[in-house]
Computed example of a mutant assay.
Amino acid sequence: MNIIISNSSGEPIYIQILNQIRKSILSGELREGDSLPSIRQLAKDLQVSIITTKRAYEELEKEQLIDTVIGKGCFVSGANQDFIREQRMKRLEKKLQEIIQDSKELNMSQQELLEYITLLFEEDQTP
Results as ranks from 00 to 15, higher is better:
M1I: 08
I3C: 01
I3Q: 00
I4W: 11
N7K: 15
N7F: 09
S9T: 04
G10D: 13
G10R: 09
E11A: 09
I13Y: 04
Y14T: 14
Y14H: 14
Y14C: 12
Y14I: 04
I15S: 04
I15W: 10
Q16E: 02
Q16F: 01
I17L: 06
I17E: 13
I17M: 11
N19E: 06
N19T: 05
N19I: 00
N19F: 06
I21K: 04
I21H: 07
R22D: 08
S24L: 11
L26A: 07
S27T: 15
S27Q: 11
G28A: 07
G28M: 06
E29S: 12
L30D: 01
E32L: 05
G33E: 01
D34V: 10
D34L: 12
D34T: 06
S35M: 06
S35C: 04
S35E: 03
L36G: 02
P37A: 01
P37I: 00
P37V: 00
R40F: 05
Q41V: 00
L42S: 05
L42V: 02
K44C: 00
K44W: 05
D45C: 00
L46T: 01
L46H: 00
Q47T: 10
S49W: 05
K54P: 01
R55V: 02
R55P: 02
R55N: 07
R55S: 08
A56Q: 00
A56E: 00
A56K: 02
A56C: 03
Y57H: 07
E58C: 09
E58Y: 13
E59F: 12
L60K: 00
E61W: 04
E63F: 12
I66T: 08
I66F: 09
D67F: 07
T68P: 02
T68H: 14
T68F: 14
V69S: 03
V69Q: 09
I70A: 12
I70Q: 15
G71K: 09
G71N: 04
K72V: 10
C74Y: 14
F75K: 02
F75A: 01
V76M: 10
V76W: 06
V76A: 09
A79I: 15
A79G: 05
A79M: 15
N80D: 13
N80V: 14
D82Y: 08
I84S: 10
R88I: 04
R88Q: 12
M89W: 04
K90P: 07
K90W: 13
R91M: 07
R91F: 12
L92I: 11
L92C: 06
E93H: 07
E93N: 12
E93D: 14
K95M: 08
L96Q: 13
L96G: 02
Q97Y: 13
E98F: 11
I100R: 09
Q101N: 14
D102A: 11
S103H: 04
M108S: 07
M108G: 05
M108Q: 14
M108K: 09
S109W: 02
S109P: 10
Q111H: 15
E112M: 03
L114V: 12
E115H: 13
Y116Q: 07
I117V: 15
T118L: 15
L119H: 08
L119I: 03
L120G: 08
E123P: 03
D124M: 14
Q125G: 05
T126V: 14
T126A: 11
P127T: 02
